[in-house]
């Protein structure tokens, strides 16, 4: 049974203690059956230059075959082409943008998105890290608008786009583009509410949903709990792993980005 976590992190978080070392995150995810961990650097979120934190995930991927490095790229850092070059040299398949924390819109990211499209890389745009109600009062960051990501995906049908950290309400609102755009996917790490994943599947999104845990900020077991009570084995297998594998290994990808 292949289980791909498209939205895991490693690192420290300021407002509460998380088991965020590479070894701790990996151990927790293997414990719930994850076989491929798409790992991004959590500390990039608050770094002046997020690119400096990407080394962590390259080193992790060099140690463990089940870790796929997911560097955070920031188009407001002038040297982003160099960081993209490093990602390509490392065989990366998936990169992550966190625009809410670096305060840019996707218009600002156009040159970077052009380059990602040209390089046939998949991009995950993270909408939120924490429920805004629970932020530290001196570190409040509004959610990035999910609709902006969908509009960007509509403009760029050749770029594979994953909406990361969307709420169920976000995903329900975007079910039409998610269903109709073959290049648009959503991670379900923050899709909560009774029957949420089943309702999304019933809306025709069974091929568009990708399993994510948001570990170590969230309990990895919760990721499984979103899926398993709601779906039959066949659909669960697609959401837990098959859909993500198809995304990550497309365009001739042979899993090189795992190392």
């Amino acid at each position: 049974m292949e289980i791909v976590d498209v939205n895991a992190w490693t690192g420290h978080w300021g407002t509460y203690t998380v088991p965020g070392t590479v070894d701790a995150v990996r151990r927790q995810l293997l414990d719930v059956g994850v076989t491929r961990i798409c790992l991004a650097p959590l500390e990039a979120v608050w770094a002046h230059n997020p690119h400096h934190r990407n080394t962590t995930v390259y080193q992790a991927a060099a140690r463990f075959a089940d870790i796929t490095p997911v560097p955070v790229l920031d188009p407001t850092i002038a040297s982003w082409p160099e960081e993209l070059h490093r990602a390509r040299q490392a065989g990366v398949r998936l990169v992550k943008l966190v625009p809410a924390y670096s305060r840019y819109d996707l218009g600002t990211a156009e040159p970077l998105l052009d380059a990602l499209e040209e390089a046939c890389l998949t991009v995950l745009v993270q909408l939120r890290l924490e429920d805004p109600r629970c932020h530290h009062p001196m570190a409040c960051v509004e959610d990035f608008p999910a609709a902006d990501v969908a509009r960007m995906a509509q403009r760029r049908p050749r770029l594979t786009v994953i909406i990361g950290g969307a709420t169920t309400a976000n995903l329900v609102a975007l079910k039409a583009p998610l269903r109709d755009l073959p290049s648009l996917y959503a991670d379900i790490s923050q899709a909560d509410g009774m029957d949420a994943v089943r309702r999304l599947v019933d809306a025709g999104l069974h091929t568009r949903l990708l399993f994510g845990t948001h570990a170590p900020l969230f309990e990895p077991l919760a990721g499984l709990a979103r899926v398993l009570p709601e779906l039959d084995d066949q659909t669960a297998a697609a959401v837990l792993g098959r859909n993500a594998s198809a995304v990550l290994d497309r365009n001739g990808g042979d899993g090189a980005g795992r190392r």
Binding site: G193, M194, D195, A196, E219, L221, A222, L228
Partner: peptide, 13 residues
Amino acid sequence: LRHPAVMLSKALA
């Protein structure tokens, strides 16, 4: 408002 199994997993984990 929340998924019962997801919330239960907070305690189980």
